[in-house]
Nucleic acid binder design. Structure first.
Lengths: 211, 211
DNA sequence: TAGCAGCAGAACAAATAAAGAACAAGTAAA
DNA sequence: TTTACTTGTTCTTTATTTGTTCTGCTGCTA
């Protein structure tokens, strides 16, 4: 599972995984020693340090609050049993290809913000949908499909290279991509130049600015 | 489980949870001491203070027999299996009291849109925060607290009757509630008239219009 | 050999917990 | 109302628990 752990470290981590529910409080080093059959906290602490630097457990510095698994570690056991989660796949900025994120993470999305069809999450860079209430840094939930009705907001791939989030208007000989920002102008394309990658179904914004 | 409690604090909280029905009156510190096997009220009181600042219990100042569990604490017992869900409690329209919904439902909210503190979800009616990208029909995630910094967006209760979602500016002799809509004007109040009920930490919008 | 993983134990500092004194606000009885 | 008692609160002092660092030891392996 994890490469750089020694046998003993793996053993301790497995123990914590299996018994995470058994402890009403996060276990102290002393309790863990007893469980692992050790007599010295100092010995155990070296393993703990290793697990912390792997990001698997956390132990608030100096605080006597015991050893906890990180969210990351919990995800490793049951990462696929959450139906409500959607993948956060990357960033979309008008005029650039979608910038994929290296490790895909999953976000819990309320039912009301998605559809029955496959959906994914992007983060918006730029102000092209400003007047539609979609700001720089907002997340958007996109339903994956390759066609849209006029007036929907779509993720469009132009000339197989530039992705953008815009209103779409499709006519027999012309496709318009229209920003919701009066300082920008609508773009006119040959329908063959524009490929629809998905349709906007939801939007989210954090006001705590830690992301 | 709650992160920032020490073991003794957790122990006392657990005791209060288990025995909330047994006491016809809320227990005194003395009675709690006896139950926890302590000899000094002073010792216990420190833990009580910690639980209060965590928002788990309430103790009206100086009142005797005043220790009660918070709504938030009670909510934790029955929803402890689903950490990501927040209650959708009702609608907020500028100038009206919060319209509570009859059956509280729970929405799965991504971590990035909430805080460690208790939060709840409201649905917005009206356009008073239009220029901040909060539209009629959007959901907002509110952190439950009774104070705010200037410039934050708060749920404020004015004259104990009208709830509203506005920017807040607090000065010694005046509290301003400022809409993000240039067609509306800031409202000036005596600080005593304005009660803060929560602070905006997240926002969500559906584009499928079925809600 | 050197190097690594692992264990035990000593020692230290910070966090946590307890007891008790003292005081003020609430409560109830006279 | 006055008085006595209870209860909540604050503070200081002391003790205990816990996380952390170090040193020294053992066995294993390349």
């Amino acid at each position: 599972m994890i490469k750089s752990l020694t046998r003993k470290q793996q053993e301790i981590f497995d123990f914590l995984l299996q018994h995470q529910d058994r402890f009403s409080h996060p276990p102290t080093l002393e309790e863990l020693c007893a469980s692992m059959g050790l007599k010295s906290r100092g010995s155990l602490h070296n393993h703990i340090k290793a697990l912390i630097s792997e990001g698997l457990i956390e132990a608030p510095e100096r605080k006597q609050r015991g050893i906890r698994l990180t969210e990351y570690a919990k995800q490793m056991i049951n990462s696929s049993d959450d139906q409500s989660a959607l993948p956060f796949v990357g960033f979309i900025a008008a005029g650039k290809p979608i910038e994929a994120v290296e490790n895909i993470t999953y976000m819990a999305i309320p039912e009301q913000l998605k559809t029955q069809k496959p959906c994914y999450v992007l983060k918006v860079k730029g102000d092209s949908m400003l007047e539609q209430g979609i700001y720089d840094g907002d997340w958007v939930i996109i339903e994956q499909r390759c066609h849209a009705r006029n007036g929907e907001i779509v993720v469009a791939l132009v000339n197989k290279s530039e992705a953008t989030l815009k209103f779409i208007e499709q006519y027999p000989h012309e496709t318009l991509l229209i920003p919701a920002n009066s300082t920008m102008e609508a773009m006119r394309y040959n329908p063959a130049q524009v490929e629809i990658q998905g349709v906007l179904v939801g939007q989210m914004r954090s006001y705590t600015k830690n992301h």
